[in-house]
Deep mutational scan, measured.
Amino acid sequence: MRSPRTRGRSGRPLSLLLALLCALRAKVCGASGQFELEILSMQNVNGELQNGNCCGGARNPGDRKCTRDECDTYFKVCLKEYQSRVTAGGPCSFGSGSTPVIGGNTFNLKASRGNDRNRIVLPFSFAWPRSYTLLVEAWDSSNDTVQPDSIIEKASHSGMINPSRQWQTLKQNTGVAHFEYQIRVTCDDYYYGFGCNKFCRPRDDFFGHYACDQNGNKTCMEGWMGPECNRAICRQGCSPKHGSCKLPGDCRCQYGWQGLYCDKCIPHPGCVHGICNEPWQCLCETNWGGQLCDKDLNYCGTHQPCLNGGTCSNTGPDKYQCSCPEGYSGPNCEIA
């Protein structure tokens, strides 16, 4: 077999650049994923090309098998939009790539799955459409700058595939050579959905506090709520009108309100015997008056200043008058 000629994957630097851009600016990249293909086995019993010639040398006159050299087999892949009637021409609109030389006439790579040499990765940054057309071609490398490479066999497949970690196996069982391969579509990290176009990256910072479920939905951490999980859940009972919080379990009062639940107004400074319904009010309790509710309107009842059976009459805020019984006098009937 001729010395292998290595063929790198098509578009790999571009895919790395796209992945970097997506990581830095995830909101700009609407989708991100990759179409993967792995060659599993190849069977070319006679070492022939599609045109019937030998990959190298002439045929044995007896059994008609190619004798001089085995094929240097590598694969090309073209991925494009779905076609009900597949045409070989036209651009590979979803991507293209190739393997290096991975074997001779016949080989089996099932035991070495995950080997990069027999895998082609086609990254995409558009919403995966699920339906596709795939062209797979086996080629013989001439290892010659003058002699062109020659095609051994080709296969085409049109179908639908959803993103999954599971592989789907396909076979080419007609023509001079048979080969088996597997395909799958996977979303990149933080991308979800059938189109790999739903973005969700767990975070716990100013912009949100959430994890992501298997469908890419945000699940808020304990103590947080809202579409972006950036609204803290305040202390139970915290007034929704007069209290708020920036951290879970907190209850910060608005100006003019106080209390554990921010449901108590702050009265006017200096208010003595008054209450409030709104901040800075001083609504006097019964029998109290004045701007600060510090004037006693029922001095008689509060202090009972009249002595010796005198009768007390309220005459104004903090004022009274005693009517003394016979034989007593003085402001409080204290003089006998």
Results as ranks from 00 to 15, higher is better:
F207I: 05
I102L: 14
T133R: 03
S156A: 14
I275L: 07
A23S: 14
T186P: 00
Y192F: 10
N173T: 14
C66G: 15
T73K: 05
R231K: 09
D188Y: 00
G62E: 11
G11E: 14
E70D: 14
N53H: 01
A138P: 00
R235P: 07
C265G: 01
D205H: 13
P317S: 14
N308H: 08
K171N: 08
I266N: 05
L17P: 00
A111D: 08
D263N: 07
N332S: 13
E81Q: 13
R12S: 14
N108K: 06
Y320S: 09
S323T: 05
P240T: 01
P4S: 14
Q83E: 15
K264Q: 08
Y82H: 15
F107S: 07
R201H: 10
P325H: 06
C200Y: 09
V86L: 04
Q50E: 03
Q254E: 13
D116E: 05
P267S: 07
Y82F: 13
V77L: 13
C212R: 10
W288C: 01
V176F: 10
D188E: 04
S158P: 03
N230K: 07
T106I: 08
N44S: 03
K246E: 14
Y181H: 00
G259S: 03
D116N: 08
G90V: 15
Y181N: 00
G301E: 04
T311I: 09
W224R: 08
A88P: 14
N332D: 14
I120T: 02
K218N: 12
C282W: 00
F124V: 05
C306G: 02
S84P: 13
S244P: 10
Y299N: 11
N44Y: 15
F94C: 07
G56S: 04
I39F: 15
S15R: 08
P331A: 12
F75V: 14
T174M: 13
G33D: 03
G193S: 03
G216V: 08
L49V: 04
N115D: 06
C293S: 00
N215I: 08
S131P: 13
H242N: 04
R130M: 07
L260M: 08
Q182P: 00
C220F: 02
C284G: 01
V136E: 00
Q291E: 10
E222Q: 12
R59Q: 10
C245W: 07
S141A: 07
F179S: 01
N332K: 09
N118H: 13
D72A: 15
R64G: 15
N44D: 02
H209N: 06
R117L: 10
T302P: 02
S150R: 05
I161T: 08
R68G: 15
I266L: 12
G243R: 07
S125G: 10
S112N: 06
A336D: 05
R203I: 07
R184G: 01
G290D: 10
G243W: 07
T145I: 03
D205E: 09
N215Y: 05
R252M: 08
P317R: 08
D140H: 07
G90W: 04
S239R: 12
D72V: 11
Q321R: 11
G47V: 15
S96A: 06
L260V: 06
F206V: 15
C245R: 09
N46T: 03
S98Y: 06
I266M: 05
E285G: 04
W257R: 05
F35C: 00
N143K: 05
E36D: 02
A336S: 15
Q214R: 08
V121E: 01
P61R: 15
D188A: 12
C293Y: 00
I335M: 14
K76Q: 14
D144G: 06
H268Y: 10
T169A: 09
E38A: 02
D296Y: 00
H303R: 12
K319E: 13
I120S: 01
T302I: 01
C78F: 02
D149E: 09
C271W: 00
M221I: 10
Y132C: 03
Q147K: 06
H178R: 04
L247P: 09
F194V: 14
G226C: 10
Y320D: 03
R117S: 08
L307I: 09
N287D: 11
V185L: 08
W280R: 09
W167R: 00
D63E: 13
N197K: 05
L20V: 01
C66S: 13
D205V: 05
I161M: 03
W257L: 05
I102N: 02
S142C: 11
E38K: 05
D296N: 10
P305Q: 08
D263A: 08
N143H: 08
C253S: 01
V45G: 04
L14R: 14
L260Q: 09
L292H: 02
G8A: 01
D189V: 05
A336G: 11
A88D: 10
K80R: 15
Q147E: 08
G259V: 00
P91L: 12
C200S: 03
G316A: 04
R68H: 07
E326V: 14
L109P: 13
R2C: 13
R2L: 15
S329L: 15
G104D: 06
